[in-house]
Design a protein around this nucleic acid. Structure first.
Lengths: 161, 161
DNA sequence: TATGAAATGCCATAACC
DNA sequence: GGTTATGGCATTTCATA
């Protein structure tokens, strides 16, 4: 992956702009940062090719997309060695229900943010992702009653009307 | 705001597509959902005008944008009455450091996701946002050692190289 | 009030300096 | 990194149901 140091002032300015609006014509961006049209297009292409920009998406009103249930799960491992931690971290990446995951300090080892459509789905998820064969000792579920702030790029299907 | 029921099958299909890639030519989208080019462009324009699509953005690699520090804060209120909860919920919305907030079940009342540049900044944030005058009884900080999954649409400035 | 079709104008692309 | 010619795409207008 490219290092931050490899991004010059123009790259950073471009990213700051397209992160707010990626439909703005390159010509406008060029004027804003004081570069030519082609330079802007070349840089944007490279930023996308090199996965500095990982996606270009429309953000849909959360009221329309919000999952039925948002859970946070505090996970304690059986033994918090680097090996076990890494294995678990690598394993959870593939679960689409998990929209956030952090390796944390304190009593617990991981914090997961999970979005599911129903309690049944959550139950199935825990069995699949947090079974004891994964090195998990125990976990605590924090059920979200209400989403107050939710900045996630939701990738779940839209709720039906 | 428009109700979900007002979105027909075509609108939902369009949203599902542009939520993954908003740079795809309308012609391609039209083929995928079985509608004409003009119909697709009209619908997209309306979805944007009516703020069903609230933004069109490039998602930047979290390793480059992620704040130096991601914290999760479990907050216990002095008294968890609806009044206090609502006041707090309304107050926190204005803090830019908070990129996620949920009203949760269990021992604690709120879970906050906070992104800051340094420990000093976090300390200042807690004093500002979680002072006792806000009705907060106590809070526990979970420091993220590592971001394993991070789907947030970060709107903070890029870190300098 | 919706779609579908065709003419216009803008924008990204690519080859070159 | 900048400039120019080309192709593609969105936009607009019109016709239709």
């Amino acid at each position: 992956m490219r290092k931050i140091a490899d991004l010059d002032r123009f790259d950073r300015q471009l990213l700051a702009l397209v992160r707010q609006n990626n439909l703005e014509p390159a010509r406008v961006l060029a004027d804003k940062i004081g570069l030519s049209l082609s330079a802007v297009l070349r840089r944007l292409r490279r930023l996308r090719d090199e996965k500095v920009i990982v996606a270009d998406i429309a953000v849909v009103n959360p009221a329309l997309t919000g999952s039925a249930l948002t859970m946070h799960v505090l996970v304690q491992m059986q033994q918090a060695g680097p090996q076990t931690m890494d294995n678990f971290a690598r394993a959870i990446v593939h679960h689409p229900e998990i929209t956030g995951a952090w390796d944390i300090t304190g009593e617990d080892d991981f914090l997961l943010k999970v979005q599911v459509g129903s309690m049944e789905e959550y139950d199935a998820f825990t069995r699949r992702a947090l079974g004891e064969d994964k090195g998990v000792h125990s976990f605590t579920t924090l059920i979200a009653i209400r989403n107050i702030i939710e900045n996630d790029v939701a990738r779940r299907p839209l709720r039906d009307g």
